[in-house]
Design a protein around this nucleic acid. Sequence first.
DNA 1: AGAAATAACTTGCATATACAAGTTAATCCG
DNA 2: CGGATTAACTTGTATATGCAAGTTATTTCT
Lengths: 159, 159
Amino acid sequence: MDHLDAARIMAADCLCYRARRAARAITRAYDTALRPIGLQATQVTLLNAIALGPESTRSMGQLAEIMALEISTLTRNLRPLERAGVIAISRSATDRRVRLVRLTETGKTRLAAALPHWRRAHAEITATLGDEPARDLRIALDHATQTMKAAERSPCSGT
Amino acid sequence: MDHLDAARIMAADCLCYRARRAARAITRAYDTALRPIGLQATQVTLLNAIALGPESTRSMGQLAEIMALEISTLTRNLRPLERAGVIAISRSATDRRVRLVRLTETGKTRLAAALPHWRRAHAEITATLGDEPARDLRIALDHATQTMKAAERSPCSGT
DNA sequence: AGAAATAACTTGCATATACAAGTTAATCCG
DNA sequence: CGGATTAACTTGTATATGCAAGTTATTTCT
């Protein structure tokens, strides 16, 4: 079993390769469409998750959980959004360890303004993929995220 | 249509959100399994693509095309691999603009050594997802990458 | 109440990713 | 042949991502 066999086997089956490659291609398409409003796809996604919280507010822990994102990554991803004034971060009054991320009025406006651009990207991509494959992809991705998250939490499968 | 409606719509359907979230979860699992050999999943993926070229060599342009990756990203992703001595970069003799990326002997050894760890990750993940959903995901991701790449190249759908 | 453990983050460090602008080499064309 | 164009990268700048280690606040336990 030399390196060529190994490479053949891994390249033929690797889900990480495929998931990342597809994510790159899809992200580029959304980013292009969102360019006019000056927000990246990942940023709009974060704003969505914040907006859907009570009072358009989420704790960092909740956000990390929702996004399946390391909290340390979240800390930094929020920085440009805070600088842009679309979110504000404060400490919880009831538990001062907790940081609450809130959508500002500016943020609400920007998010509402993002929708038509997002729609355009979404329409373009589903047209490119085809309706059926797009739905299949969506379902497969959701299933993967859910089961992987569950597995991370379970003690026995870790490493 | 306020920001809340917008957030609901986008969160409910966004493929970018889902693709990136799933890619993160999957990547974490592969990275964990590959830890012992000191290579990340993305790096092993790159090495695979190089290994499968003639003489275990690829030009940067070929690599970027295969990986659906910006060539500027590729330049930097190759850096740590070069530093680690698993690849070597040289100029093509026939076209001195072209950079040829070659797997070194060390690289071949490391890649072969990665296989069992990769297998472990792959087995764990397919077990977590289930065989059928894992295959569906793989097919959906490949289809997405292929069609998106084709669309990027076609002149009319761009932006 | 006070020490120990835990929870929720932040920071340090390293890699991953992309667009725009710059560089070098090949090709095209008058 | 020589200027203009194109091709293949690299660099500058900024965001995205994760692990390990550090910080601050709460909880637990004696």
